[in-house]
């Protein structure tokens, strides 16, 4: 690595420094736009007691779901975790903790975390179990709860194209949580389908500027589809 070149040669290098008990923020929505290679590397490393912040926890045998197989996850912070038998078993067995967080609040927690905002007020969840125990404030006659930002020791992100400086473009709805995740890691790793030279991407089209990216790697992706729906 030199200058602004963020490219690393292997997933070992990409995930170096990940330790037991750390917090990892992962981009992705369902199985769309998930950092497949980083997840596989965490599985390989066998790191345990992880707190994973991600909208979902993959499915049995794919995505973040594979980290359940060896009980690597201590706690999930997610908005929806319904796709996964192993998840259910470990949750009911008390081996896994889950902090259910409304989807928009989760996105904003990551955004705030990356933007240096420690907390924010939202009407989402007021008067529901999500608001229990949280500070309530009234603005213009409406009640809001305080939600705290999230940052991670690592953030793992799936992009489409990036230049070697780590300027990233996402493809279609594989964008989802990835741009916020990219801002919220102490160490942010982005894996992409294609790495190009600086200058090849239009600066106007960059979703994640390279300043957020610490390590960049080109991967290959299975891109499994969760609900294949077609019309005739």
């Amino acid at each position: 690595m030199s200058g602004f070149n963020k490219v690393v040669g292997s997933y070992e290098e990409a995930m170096a420094g990940l330790e037991d008990g750390m917090t990892v923020i992962a981009g992705g929505f369902g199985l769309c736009g998930i950092p497949e290679g980083c997840i596989a590397q965490i599985k390989k490393m066998g790191t345990k007691e992880l707190t994973i912040v991600s909208n979902n926890c993959g499915v049995d045998g794919f995505g973040l779901g594979i980290l359940l197989e060896d009980k690597q996850i201590k706690k999930m912070v997610s908005s929806y975790v319904g796709e996964n038998k192993l998840f259910e078993d470990q949750l009911l067995g008390g081996e896994l903790e889950v902090e259910l967080t409304p989807q928009g609040t989760l996105a904003e927690k990551m955004r705030a975390g990356g933007a240096g905002i420690p907390a924010f007020y939202t009407a989402t969840g007021y008067g529901t179990p999500v608001g229990d125990g949280k500070e309530v404030r009234e603005f213009d006659g409406r009640k809001y709860i305080m939600e705290e930002a999230i940052t991670g020791d690592f953030a793992i992100v799936k992009g489409w194209k990036a230049d070697t400086y780590g300027n990233v473009i996402y493809r279609h709805t594989a964008q989802n949580f990835n741009p916020m995740a990219a801002t919220a890691g102490k160490i942010t790793i982005v894996e992409v389908e294609e790495i190009v030279e600086p200058g090849e991407l239009d600066p106007t089209q960059i979703h994640t500027p390279g300043i957020y990216v610490d390590r960049l790697i080109q991967g290959t992706f299975e891109k499994r589809i969760e609900q294949r729906t077609v019309r005739a």
Binding site: L31, C32, T173, I225, R228, T229, V230, R231
Partner: peptide, 19 residues
Amino acid sequence: PFPTEEEVDADMINAGKQT
């Protein structure tokens, strides 16, 4: 609408995770 068989794209889904 849902894509045709040829149009299916794993990167293009809705909130129900449908293509």
